[in-house]
Design a protein around this nucleic acid. Structure first.
Length: 568
RNA sequence: GUCCUCGUAGUUCAACGGAUAGAACAAGGUCCUCCUAAGACCUAGAUUCAGGUUCGAUUCCUGACGGGGACACCA
């Protein structure tokens, strides 16, 4: 049982004896120092119910807290807050037991599928895809650390009308040599050309739809073969990026994976009466006026299916696999789509917890990235620029690391900076694409945290070089002489609660902000408290704090998908 | 037209309905005979507006204004 739970139990008992009420205690972490380590507004909440002054209630609660070893001090503050300060001994004990890497034990272990990345085959991967890629990976890691069974999946957009279009374009304008030479670039060019031509030639759209229909309905061998080849080439390109970003997929169940289940899904919609026949014979689901959801079409009048049909099939598939939750890391703009699909699944009787963890897009100062306007920034362009700046920064700061090591380090810092810049901000809102902010290695940034972790590692290395750790050293009560030590220790101990919150809210920035604070806390401590030159017992305490800080920062960064270098 | 989102220092972002609205960058001022100055410390600076609910509102509700997005045969 962790400190938070112990405190809650103590306070609940105190409230019970003082007021006769059985209330769930909410513990807050006060924003300002001087308000203790934990605070509860319970007295204020009870004030109206009991018709008493909140401060008087707080007084009674405080007097009835059972004897214990964890509370150093309890006091009433402000309008009726009960502020709790922890005893240094319990902080010491908890820190001794603390291990950042250790997964938590959830109240109920869940099987969770996390869908992310989901690139559209034959469409260029640009910087706009960056968010989903790193968010998904981080969320998967956060949920795993929270003790859940997580399966990452990639709902590759490898099925649909765009393949009909692409096939038409290849047959019409494609040249084998050019395509073989640089498949993706050429496919993208052809796809773009198709859309340009289609603007003044309506016939093309029909041809595209027809070719896809042949693939799907008639299983046209020639089209399917071409399709297979296109998908393969696209994925090669895709994996180059995911490797660089350290993103992993347990499954690659693309849209085509669900293709064989589609007839059953359509049948289900029909027989259940949830689906109905719409204009021109399409199969649609009407949600009614109360739901405020517009009608969604699940089968086109020509018999072909749509994205949502496959999404629905996917829900049914994962339900049969025994998953409790599905998380969709997909842009906000698809929110309506998911609400419609989820509602349809619900009406069909499925009961999973489906969450659209939507994210904002990366916006340029002049507006949205648009392939048409030619304002798309490619992923590799950003990577290369980040690498260049990291490399230059290394030369400026540390000339001792050279060669391959320097290159690897520059890569770690570059990717770390890019990822942190993104994950450090709210998932839901758009973020501004800004070279300077993104590649600023000072302040609220990945390298700032990496630097702090590296500094810890450096001290630890020196400590063991000069004086190897003695067996049994990891026992005993830590003596907190300096307030910076105690405050750092308490900060470290908040780690698990923070990870849990980040995982529950599906918002990595909660963890990012914490890591930034922890690094700052350590840096302050570092400025005030010499470690290696300190006398015992301070030296042991400070080394231990350094050790735990390093572990926490490193593992915290790992949960964001960011690597920690050995030195920098 | 309907629905979803967002509006906080000069800029980019934080803040389970809680106390004195936090940071970072940019601006100004300190600190390397001392474990990595990619650092620490100090100064100045903000809730779009009008109502409502509440002991208490940046947060919830209603409306206005202003961004962004989505709305039947794309994904």
């Amino acid at each position: 049982m962790n400190i938070t739970h112990q405190l809650q139990a103590l306070l609940e008992q105190a409230v019970q004896t003082a007021t006769g009420q059985s209330e769930l205690i909410v513990l807050e972490n006060p924003r300002h120092e001087g308000f203790g380590d934990y605070a509860t507004p319970i007295a204020m909440q009870l004030a109206k119910k009991l018709g008493q002054n909140p401060r008087e209630i707080a007084q009674q609660i405080m007097e009835n807290i059972p004897d214990n070893t964890i509370i150093e001090k309890a006091e009433i503050a402000g309008p009726g807050f009960l502020n709790i300060t922890l005893a240094p001994e319990i902080v010491s004990e908890s820190l001794r037991e603390f291990a950042a890497e250790k997964p938590l034990v959830p109240v109920r272990k869940k099987r969770i599928e996390v869908e992310f990345a989901s690139p559209n085959v034959a469409k260029p991967l640009h910087f706009g895809h960056f968010r989903g890629l790193i968010l998904g990976e981080s969320l998967a890691r956060l949920l795993r650390h929270s003790g859940h069974e997580v399966l990452t999946d990639n709902f590759v957009g490898d099925w649909g009308t765009q393949f009909g279009k692409l096939i038409v374009a290849i047959r019409k304008w494609g040249d084998k040599k050019t395509i073989d030479h640089n498949p993706i670039e050429e496919l993208v060019r052809l796809y773009r050309k198709f859309h340009q031509e289609a603007e003044h030639d309506a016939e093309l759209e029909k041809q595209g739809a027809e070719e896809f229909r042949k693939m799907e309905v008639e299983h046209d061998a020639e089209n399917l073969e071409l399709w297979k080849w296109i998908v393969g080439e696209s994925l090669k390109d895709f994996f180059v990026v995911t490797d660089r970003l350290d993103a992993h997929f347990d499954e690659m169940r693309g849209e085509s994976f669900y293709e064989k289940m589609l007839p059953t899904v359509l049948e289900k919609l029909r027989t259940s009466g949830i689906g109905s026949t719409g204009e021109a014979g399409a199969l649609v689901v009407e949600f009614g006026d109360e739901s405020k959801l517009p009608t969604m079409i699940f089968q086109k009048s020509d018999g072909a299916t749509l994205y949502q049909t496959r999404d629905l099939a996917k829900i049914i598939f994962y339900d049969s696999e025994g998953f409790d939750e599905m998380i969709y890391v997909v842009g906000n703009e698809q929110n309506l789509h998911f609400r419609q699909v989820f509602e349809t699944a619900r009406r069909l009787g499925y009961q999973g917890a489906w969450t659209h963890a939507g994210h904002g897009l990366v916006r340029l100062p002049e507006g949205k990235m648009s392939a048409r306007a030619g304002t798309v920034i490619s992923l590799s362009e950003v990577f290369d620029e980040a690498y260049k700046r990291a490399f230059a920064s290394l030369i400026e700061h540390n000339s001792e690391i050279i060669g391959k090591e320097r290159e690897d380090l520059a890569e770690i810092l570059a990717i770390g900076a890019l990822k942190f810049n993104d994950l450090g901000q709210n998932r839901k809102t758009d973020i501004l694409f800004d070279w300077e902010a993104m590649l600023d290695f000072n302040g609220y940034s990945g390298p700032f945290i990496q630097y702090s972790a590296v500094r810890c590692a450096s001290i630890l290395r020196k400590a063991t070089d000069h004086c190897p750790p003695v067996k049994g050293e990891s026992k005993g009560v830590l003596s907190f002489e300096h307030e910076a030590e105690l405050s750092l220790a308490k900060k470290i101990l908040r780690f698990s609660d923070v990870v849990l919150e980040a995982a529950e809210r599906l918002e990595p920035h909660v963890l990012a902000e914490y890591l930034f604070q922890l690094a700052g806390e350590y840096n302050s401590f570092y400025a005030k408290c010499p470690v290696l030159k300190a006398d015992e017992p301070e030296r042991t305490t400070r080394l231990f704090l350094t050790q735990k800080t390093a572990e926490t920062l490193t593992h915290g960064l790992y949960l964001l998908g960011i690597k920690t270098p050995k030195q920098m």
